[in-house]
Design a protein around this nucleic acid. Structure first.
Length: 283
DNA sequence: AAAGAGCACAACCGCACCCGA
DNA sequence: TTCGGGTGCGGTTGTGCTCTT
């Protein structure tokens, strides 16, 4: 796109296979100096016998500055698992939430390790569920209505829409009057939201009873950011929560939370952190 | 010590989409 | 409107290393 095709270019036989340190150096030097511009012209200009596609891949997955190498942390793995549950095999989208990791790296890690872990977990859960059913004890149930949650209730299980059993801890209910407020200050996927009632900046919305799709998110504020306040009065119904996180991830934008313990001090969060944040509160 | 199985990672392939001519 | 090149993405394969027998 925007590249002039290299007319009458003789068909070169492109090198394949592993990259030599010399090739890496040539590619790196060239891109650091001139940028990649049009990938198809990179190999010629950089003096490489590769095709543009191969150069692009090598740069993105290996040479690009800022790449994190080595083991995935527990937090990264949890993020991958959470996002994979929501997004499926959208590796590039998942990679956007893991700075320094490439889609290829995440994909490989999934196939070689996480996939098995998930399968094992599902198997264990199925077995537990089975055993519980046999004992006629109701271990798996839908999330109860907010009012029915005991102030002193602790961990319990429920099943989300994918049939995955989630552990929740409602002991936070004891602090109901001190619930965190969530303030979203940026929302890129505005065109996803249509409805009659626009949400004005600062409007408080009870998310648990809210179908977010019905809101038409309004203009941005003076400071260029959108301010819509969602006041969480209780646990989200899982569907709403999933839908919500999904939308946030689709928006691919950073957004802010109001610090639960203060009225000021907004902190930028990315969707994965939002998810973890919710986990801290609700799980 | 040798063979082969398993694993991790790099790289390729094919397809879909975008955009300019 | 159509066509073709460029790009991005996900699936798959290839390769080398480590572990087990």
């Amino acid at each position: 796109m925007g590249c002039r095709p290299l007319d009458h270019k003789p068909k070169k036989k492109h090198r394949k296979g592993l990259w030599s340190p010399d090739e890496d150096q040539k590619l790196k030097n060239y891109i650091m100096m001139y940028g990649h511009g049009c990938w198809s012209s990179v190999p010629t200009n950089a003096g490489l016998q590769r095709n543009g596609k191969s150069c692009r891949l090598r740069w993105i997955n290996y040479l690009r500055p800022g790449l994190k190498r080595g083991m995935f942390s527990m937090q990264e793995e949890e993020t991958i698992l959470t996002l994979h549950q929501i997004l499926g095999n959208k590796w590039s989208q998942i990679a956007r939430h893991l700075p320094g990791r490439t889609d290829n790296e995440i994909k490989n890690h999934w196939h070689s390790y996480l996939k098995k872990r998930v399968a094992k977990k599902a198997e264990t859960e199925a077995r537990i569920k089975d055993e519980c059913a046999n004992n006629q004890s109701l271990m798996v149930e839908a999330l109860p209505p907010v009012d029915s949650i005991s102030q002193n209730s602790t961990a319990e299980s429920f099943e989300n829409k994918d049939g995955l059993i989630l552990e929740t801890d409602h002991s936070w209910g004891a602090q109901k009057n001190n619930l965190p407020k969530v303030l979203f200050t940026e929302w890129l996927a505005l065109d996803q939201f249509h409805g009659q009632e626009p949400v004005n900046p600062g409007t408080e919305v009870d998310l648990k009873s809210t179908n977010i799709d019905q809101y038409n998110i309004p203009n941005v504020n003076d400071d260029g950011l959108l301010h819509s306040l969602f006041l969480n009065e209780g646990p989200f119904e899982m569907q709403s929560h999933d839908l919500f996180v999904d939308d946030m991830i689709r928006s691919q934008s950073p957004f802010s939370f109001q610090d639960p313990n203060s009225d000021s001090g907004l902190i930028n969060y990315f969707p994965r952190e939002f998810d973890l944040f919710c986990d801290d509160i609700y799980m």
